[in-house]
Structures are given as structure tokens and as C-alpha cells.
Amino acid sequence: MKGFILSFRSEFYKSRKTAGFWGAILLPFFVSLMALLIFYFKSEKFITMPAMMLWVQFALVALGLMGTLLLPMYTIFVAYSVNNVEHKADTWKTLFSLPISRWSVYGAKFAYAVFLVLLCLTLFVLFTITFGNLLSVLKPELKFNTYHLEWELTQVYFKLFLSSLGILSIQFLMSLLWSDFIKPMGVGFILTIVGVTAASKGWEYSYAFPYAHPMVALTTMFKNKKGPAQDIVIDVFTKDVFVAVAVSAVVFVVGYFIVQRKSVK
């Protein structure tokens, strides 16, 4: 366990100055800022909306982007980034000749990739809430302060987080085994496009395909779709989310056995 914690801290220390880490902060900041600017400069379009719809519309700017292409692409990038640090510096051989178990080195790296995705999505929640409330100060006619979406938003992003784990584990393994940029990224993008297409066409088995999960997660998030919604009830644990978590667990374990047996070049 000590080796795992040391390795995790080291992952943070190494990534502090890389795009993988800063992406987790800057991506939610700029997407949320974009939503803020849209609502600030086009406030007349939203003034008539009830506060709940206002929040939903505001949150959907980021959610729409994340649910379709941005979350899968960011996940692919994170998986690439944490492994590329070692490929680029040719440091796998030193990592695996440290007096730390292979399990800790591998587990901490995967955990750190999971952490980066979680950090990014948490910041989406925080920036959305903060910027929404900021808007009600800057433009008092936008009544953001009269409704609270914090809990629902947290649930939605948590659902998105879980739905990204399948992609993350597959991409993580590919990026670990392939030292070049093109293969994991190329395969990842193609599968993402397939996934987004499958989910948007409402293919009945898209819940079983990891690369479709973020988008499926958004379409399955409302518990009751019938009738005018007075309150929003979020369904976090849907079939697709269970598949995503299960896929990530299986791929993680398979990956461990591959790393255990792998010769380090």
C-alpha cells in the first residue's frame, strides 16, 4: 500500500507541468466560461425562462459538449498522457526496477488517470454552479439564485464519470502497451465516432459498447420523461453505467496480468 501511495504522489509530481494535468483544470474552466459569456451577452433570450429551465439550459452547454465528443476525447487523452510521460522519457525500465511492486506502479498510474477524469468532471460541477451564481449577480434579471441544481448536477456528472471508466480502462491499456501516439489515439477516435453514432441513432445495444456510454448516460439520466417536469430526478445507476464499471474492472485486471508478465524493453 505504501508503494501505491508513493507511486500516486509521484504521478502527480511528474504530471504537474504537463498538458494532461492542466487539461483537467482548463477544459472545464473554458467550457464553463463559454457558457457564461453566451448567457451574459444573449441574456435577453433567457430572461423569460423559469429558474429551473435556466439552470438546465446553462448546464447543457457543457453537458452537451461533454456527453457527445468531449468526454470520450478527454478520457482518451488522459490515458495517453499518463503513459506517454514514461514512453517519452524511456523510464518504464526505471519504474519497474524500483523496489516497488509492479502492482503498485500499475495500479497507481491507473488510479491517477481515474483521478484526473474525476477532477475534470468535479470542476465542471463547481464552475457551472459558480458561474451560474455569478451571472445572477452580473445580470440580476437572470434568476439563477432562485433555484438550486447543485445536487442534480453532481449526480449527472458522477454518472458521466462512471460512464467514462470503460473507455478509460481500454485506452489506458492501449496507451501502456503502444508507445506511439497514433495507434491508441486513432483506434480511440474511430471507436468514439462509432459509439456516438450508435448512441445517437438509438441502437438498442449501445449500452453494451463502452465508447457509447457517455452519450447513453445522458439519454438515460432522467428518471421520468413523461409529462411536464416539476422537479428533475436523476437516475445514476442505469444499465449502461453498470456495463462501463464492469468493463473497467475486467480490463484493469487483465492489464495487470499483462504488465506482470511483460518484459520491459
Partner: peptide, 12 residues
């Protein structure tokens, strides 16, 4: 140990 060319993180 030091194996082949040294393994060093260039961005640090």
C-alpha cells in the same frame, strides 16, 4: 542502476 541512455523526465 543505470541502463542504456539515462531515463530522465525532460520536462522536469
Amino acid at each position: 542502476s543505470l541502463i542504456e541512455q539515462p531515463a530522465i523526465y525532460a520536462h522536469m
